[in-house]
């Protein structure tokens, strides 16, 4: 007990000689400033970083989480809409391409996105600038639509490896561009990705072949909506020629991989009345366990088709979490400095 008392006496002596602090922001230790900055919305952070160099470097060292982000071309400018904790927190329309690029760079640097949707259109023609100047995006689910295909590939290369889903619009995608995309490591490893409105017929067998070559995990999923007829047949022919077919009917094709316990299943999307979707065919490709029985297949394709094209089933629309109208209505438009 006496030794305890001695320790306490020593410690309390130390406490007593601690500094008496002043009461200004500048006298606060950096760790407390960072804690406070962590509680600020992006607007306040951007304003604080304009006050002095020291504040700028502090603000820039702190990441900020967004559950939704939308960067979209609108009348020659880019519109940025970012939301945090399901509350809309930041809205800005860039003034000119340089400002747009600087803001993408900044938001990419500090942002940690749950969902990020990018639609650059054809705004960026200098693709080298995107490759060299952009940092890595930290994003869980990324959606790239209505983009110059080269911009799309550049951004994909700038996404950190732990991305969980990639959604792409593929109306400008050629076989060569698809090959480039399939070379990107996080595309090879992502648990879910899809291409909407693909105009060629080669994506299904190429993705399956990439999974076979890389021994991809069970659960890896790729979906596509394709305008051209013939993807299903091309897939069947490609793997039949390589003696990989396990089973095949008009709805599904199942193939072997190099791992005896892994199969790949291709499913075709059907209308509720059993008809094939004529205006855009829907496909789902999955790495499955070789143990999965045919009786365990799920015939309800509505859910997975909705995931690739939410607008196809009107009854689902009201529940869509990605409505643009909702996005735009919720924001107040202000002017921001960064």
């Amino acid at each position: 007990m006496s030794s305890d008392l001695k320790i306490v006496t020593e410690m309390t002596k130390k406490w007593s000689i601690g500094p008496i602090y002043d009461t200004n922001w500048c006298d606060m230790p950096a760790e407390i400033k960072l804690e406070c900055i962590g509680k600020m919305a992006l607007n306040e952070r951007l304003l604080l970083r304009c006050t002095a160099k020291a504040e700028r470097s502090l603000v820039d060292s702190q990441k900020i989480k967004f559950n939704k982000g939308l960067i979209r071309k609108s009348c020659g400018d880019l519109v940025f809409l970012l939301s945090r904790d399901d509350k809309y927190t930041f809205a800005k329309r860039s003034k000119g391409i340089n400002e747009a690029f600087e803001l993408i760079k900044y938001i990419g640097k500090i942002g940690v996105f749950e969902n990020l949707e990018i639609s650059f259109g054809y705004l960026f023609t200098d693709t080298k600038k995107l490759i060299t100047d952009l940092g890595l995006f930290t994003v869980k689910n990324i959606e790239l639509t209505y983009c110059n295909i080269d911009n799309m590939i550049d951004v994909l290369r700038k996404v950190k490896n732990d991305v969980e889903s990639i959604k792409m619009g593929g109306d400008t995608m050629t076989a060569e561009k698809l090959a480039e995309i399939l070379e990107i490591s996080h595309v090879q490893n992502v648990p879910y990705w899809h291409i909407l409105n693909y105009e060629q017929t080669d994506c299904l067998y190429k993705v399956a072949q990439m999974w076979i070559d890389r021994n991809s995990k069970i659960g890896s999923t790729f979906q596509a909506s394709v305008y051209q007829l013939g993807s299903f047949e091309k897939f069947s022919r490609h793997f039949n020629d390589r003696d990989r077919l396990v089973s095949m009917n008009e709805k599904r094709v199942r193939i072997r991989t190099n791992k005896p316990d892994h199969h790949i299943l291709l499913e075709r999307g059907f209308e509720e009345d059993g008809e094939i979707h004529l205006y855009g065919q829907y496909f789902r490709l999955m790495v499955i366990s070789a143990e999965l029985k045919e009786s365990e297949y799920n015939d309800n394709c509505k859910e997975w088709i909705y995931k690739i094209n939410p607008e196809i089933y009107k009854e689902y629309d009201s529940a869509s979490p990605y409505s643009y109208d909702e996005y735009y209505e919720g924001f107040g438009w202000g002017s921001f400095v960064y």
């Binding site: 304003l47 006050t51 002095a52």
Partner: peptide, 14 residues
Amino acid sequence: KSPEEIREIWMIPT
């Protein structure tokens, strides 16, 4: 608040 106001409130030197 504007950057100037923040500077004033928190006494941040330029």
